[in-house]
Structure formats: C-alpha cells, structure tokens
Amino acid sequence: MVITTAPGTRPRSGHPATPRPTGPPRTSLGRKVRDSLTGHAFLIGAVLCFAFFSWYPMVHGVVMSFQRTRRGVTTWVGWDNYTRIVADPSFGAAWKNTLTFTVLALVLGYAVPFFVAILLNEFRHAKGYLRALVYLPVMLPPASALFLFKFYAYDPSDAGLFNSILKALHLPTSQWMQSPGMTMPAMVLASTWMNMGGAVLIYLAALQSIPGELYEAAELDGAGIWRRIRHVTIPQTRLILALLAMLQIVATMQFFIEPLILANGAGAEDSATSVAYLIYQHGFFQNDLNGAAALGVIMLVVLAGFSAAYLRLSAKQD
C-alpha cells in the first residue's frame, strides 16, 4: 500500500495524518476567572467610591431630615424639619430667585453658546485660536473669574468696565450687585461667560457631524442662514440640545458660588439668595444641619422631577 502525502509534509508510518484545529484558541477556565476578577476589581473600586462619597451622604441626609440633634442627643421628629423650613421667610424668596436664575440662564446661557458655536463653525481660519479663547474662562478657577467680574466689571463707580461703557454711550450707569433689580441678570451674565466654553465645544462637535450635503441642498432651495439653522442645524442637533438643556436646568438650580462671591450671600433685599445658599446658611451659620438636610431633600425631589420629565419626553420623541 502506497501512502501519498501533500508536498512539504512528512508521513507517519502506518497512521493517517491528524488534522490540525482550525477554530480560535481555547481559553482556559483559570484565565477567564482571572480576567473576570480583574474587571470586577476595577468595578468594585468605582462602586465603593460612589457609595462612600455620593450615595451614603445622600441617604444619610435623607435620614437626618427626619431627625433633630440637640446637645448630642438625636431624636426622630418626623416632618417637623420640613414644616419649619417651609415656614422660613427666606424659603419662598430663595425658590423664586432660583427659578428666576434658571429661566434667565436658559434664555441667555443656553442660547448664546449655541450661536457662538455656529459662528465659530463658519470660520475658515484661526479656528484653534478662537476655540481656545472661548474655552479660556472655563480653565479659570470659578472664584477667580467671579472676583474679576465683581471688582473689575461690576464696580458701581465710573471706573467699572460696564459703567464706563454705559457712560461712553451716554446711558445711565447702574449699581449692578447693589441694585435688587440688576442682581440676577448680572449673576446670569457672569455665570454664562464663565461656563459657556464647555457647551460651545460640545455644540461644535455636534455641528461638525452634520453632513454638508444637507446645507448644500438647502442653499440650492434658496434657504438663507436662518432657515438653514431652523430646518437643518436644529433638527440635526436636537438630541444634544435636549441633553444640554436638562443638564443646564439641573446645574443652574444649584447655583451657589455666584451669590456667595458677587452678592456676599443674600444680596440687597434677599435678591440673590438661592436654595443652595440657604442650605449653606442653615448648616454653617445657624448650626441647623437637620433643617439644611430637609431643604436638600426638597431640592433633590424637585430636580428628580425635572429629570423624570426629561426622560419621559425624550422617550416619546425617540
């Protein structure tokens, strides 16, 4: 009997050639367990950090809101802290100022970054320089940026930047942070300048993902720039706009450093008191940690309601 073999192979006498496995190499059980343990170790570390620094303080704050601590003795008081906080005269003013700041921030701080991003997207030269210039305020410490506004831009004398501009235009000057009617718009303006860099970069990334053929088709149909923004840009960036709107609402309703630095806390006639600053005032000035916890829980419920409404609306749109 003659055994024929393929060229380049050596036959084994009396036994047929054993076929080699063609599938992917098998992974041993021990290696799978080691890889799984490594992934779970990183995951457990992240979960422990969130549990210790975020979830535990949140749960403990909810528990504290139903307690009262006097001279080291803690007792359960039910809803007493909530009724006492709601009856505080500053409670209504704080929520009014917070909602006013949120609405003004949506009108100014939400729209301005979007149109700045559209403007930067149209430039053909010095794009990197202009983006760095817009993002520069974000790299400044928030306290430094607000002190810059307080002592340089909002100086009530004629030496202030904004009053100098108004005087040059023969317009009446303003007391800015000392005027109850101008306190909130002034804080919104400073906050918008300080925080819009990140939103501008996100909008730029969304704008650059829009196919150019859509703009070319709109131009062939005779659409001007406003019609292109309305019928092409906004629909194509709808999801990013909705997401940043929700993040803006959550962030602006927790504004704290603006009244603390610009208005020295409450401002003239409580015109700058926010809910977050009222929590700080109860906890650190009045030594009322239980009342501060109750107010924090109220804010948590309100923000959770906004988030739930956003998720419901986005699910319907999808």
Rank of each mutant, 00 (worst) to 15 (best):
A217H: 11
G283K: 09
P141C: 03
A17N: 09
T75Y: 02
T9P: 01
G61C: 03
P185L: 14
L48W: 04
I249N: 11
Q248H: 12
I257P: 05
A126D: 07
Q286D: 12
I85F: 11
D80Q: 15
V62Y: 11
I225L: 10
F50A: 15
A206T: 09
A268K: 14
D80G: 04
V301F: 09
A251R: 08
R227L: 11
N195R: 01
A41H: 01
P7M: 12
L43D: 07
I234A: 04
L300Q: 10
I44R: 04
S271E: 09
K316C: 03
V33F: 09
A117R: 10
M299E: 06
N287P: 08
A93E: 09
I165Y: 00
R20A: 14
V116E: 00
A51Y: 11
T102A: 10
C49T: 14
R20D: 01
Y215M: 03
T75G: 01
A294L: 05
E122H: 08
G92F: 15
H125F: 14
D88I: 06
I249Y: 08
D88G: 01
K150I: 00
Y154H: 03
S174H: 15
C49L: 14
M253R: 06
T252E: 07
L262W: 02
I44E: 02
G212K: 01
Y110W: 02
R12N: 10
L189E: 08
